[in-house]
Amino acid sequence: MINIQLSDIPLSADECTELVKDPSAGGVVVFVGTVRDQTKGKAVKRLEFEAYAPMAVKEMYKIATTIEKKFGATNVVIHHRTGVLGIKDVAVVIAVSTPHRKAAFEACEYAIDTLKESVPIWKKEIFEDGEIWVAAHP
């Protein structure tokens, strides 16, 4: 089962965990990406996420499909936020269930690494004295 969501409402790691649980799966690994309060020592006030939504959903599906094949995942859930997020808010949840635990850890790491490289979502860090699009410049 694959479940992909891109939305501006708060995410629930518990909900994602419940979604991937399966009688045939002995392991669930959940990655929760949260908003950090600083970047290189500079205080972050909030983050603003925007997405090219139809393509972002498509790319997240591709990641989930790859995980099913490559890591033999039973279920994959990828939920990502858009909009304005405060410190400690959840930006992304990736939950994977597999028959045995090792594959679930590997699949989860693969998913977040690939998401950061290929899914058309952008975040802007807002500081006290300015703002910056993350990772835009070398």
């Binding site: 393509m55 990502h80 930006a91 952008w122």
Partner: peptide, 28 residues
Amino acid sequence: AVDEEYQEDTFLLSEDKEVVIIPPVSGG
């Protein structure tokens, strides 16, 4: 991106096609 897929430099466009500029992504 064209038609919601990344496209190579050699991809040929057609008149009035929608082309999306994808700067470095930073989701997660």
